[in-house]
Design a protein around this nucleic acid. Structure first.
Lengths: 229, 229
DNA sequence: CCCGAACGTTGTTCTAGAGCAACCTTTGGC
DNA sequence: GCCAAAGGTTGCTCTAGAACAACGTTCGGG
């Protein structure tokens, strides 16, 4: 394992208040791990032995129902902590984390959580801000699912992804990881058929441009309107 | 304001690790407040100036959409903290808290939050466990809304309420606060009409017994089956 | 005791979107 | 270069449940 550079962590919120030696200490206790696309980092219900920092790639957080259906709760972009069950007093992961693209992560044993929180100023508060944002996002999901139609939910889902993991291209903003119709349907509680139809319609209208496993949003503004101003 | 007794707080999770003098200190800094049914304790988006402990009654946590629709995210039973926005680094309440019944609360200025966390062992961890449970509940809501039919969602919603705020009676377990069809529909993302129809049907089947603003679950087991084993 | 508002019921209509089905397209492994 | 698997499209049917509507019932305040 080669030595990681401090500049990797220094700009990230949970570590932004720390001095170089502290970051060094954190890095020295980290294990670096790679995951292939589609592989799961941990499974719902498993003992929460580690927590992670996502260095590169995107995580899809899913729940699997007793009858095998998948529901995507959240996407986590690079630069954020994940698998931080201990922060909410859980000793087991509440959901499964799947690599939406190839991943690069750092990983610490959960036993270190407590010392991170006490030893490193700002770590706890910044981490809880992240948790707060995720909770807020989940809350929005609930409101959307209760009040909005499929078209609006899908529009918003795409906008959220674009905002979080968008990459500028000439023709629009591209979602920066492979994503299928099925994936979108699992984010919005619909079927891949409905997503496919909508995306086709939007493509005809020049709103989006999508290929196999790729979605580019060309006209975010009109999509916002569709999502319900 | 009359002096509150330490035994009020001692058994509650966030305070269960504390000595009497510490609890005394906490109580001495608390303000006790009453709220009538239907009144809101705080509103979404307002500055989070206080955090609360619910001594008696039930809180309905709602979000209101731009076009005036209400969505209930959560119910909070007596004995729990609420309005704890600061725990997730927010300076504004993420939702509105409405008194589902007459309420009795204790209330502290948010400025004390930090000292509670640092001065009182177990306070932080126990509080975050509560947050964790609420997040888990929200997660379940999302999964339910994505995969289950209205009948199952309503069945589960009732079971959740009964588990959380149930009071035994001769004919079954009663939900311990006034609750209308409309309320149930706002919890499940449906209409009061659909809820009314279902409740009528269930009543005929002897599953529930409901009057105006009252719901008694007579056969929880069969309701579990309906909710999807 | 009366009246109006809040709450609840029930019937009918209508449609969004699921379900089913068939087929096309891309891709990567051998 | 072929072919099987994964992903995507599109048409048709059918139904859960929303929307609309009209009418009961309970309750609390003056």
């Amino acid at each position: 394992m080669h030595r990681l550079d401090e500049s990797l962590l220094a700009p990230l919120p949970p570590f932004s208040f720390l001095e170089r030696p502290q970051i060094r200490a954190i890095l020295d206790r980290a294990t670096s791990r790679r995951f292939d696309e589609g592989v799961s980092v941990f499974e719902e219900g498993a003992a929460a032995n580690s927590f992670y920092l996502l260095l590169d790639g995107t995580i899809r957080v899913v729940k699997i129902t007793p009858d095998g259906e998948q529901v995507t709760s959240l996407h986590i972009p690079a630069g954020q902590l994940f698998g931080i069950a201990p922060s909410l007093g859980r000793d087991t992961y509440p959901a499964t984390a799947i690599a939406a693209s190839e991943l690069l992560t750092l990983c610490w044993p959960t036993s270190l959580w407590h010392s991170f929180v006490t030893d490193y100023p700002g770590f706890a508060t910044e981490t809880y801000k992240t948790v707060g944002n995720r909770v807020a996002e989940m809350n929005n999901r609930i409101v959307e699912m209760s009040t909005q139609h499929v078209e609006q939910r899908i529009a918003r889902a795409l906008l959220r992804l674009v905002k979080q993991s968008g990459k500028k291209t000439e023709i629009g903003i591209e979602i920066d990881f492979p994503i299928t119709r099925q994936d979108v349907s699992e984010m919005t509680g619909t079927t891949l058929h409905t997503v496919s139809r909508l995306l086709s319609a939007w493509e005809k209208d020049g709103l989006v441009n999508s290929k196999r496993k790729k979605i580019i949003v060309c006209d975010p503004h009109r999509l916002v309107v569709l999502g319900g101003a």
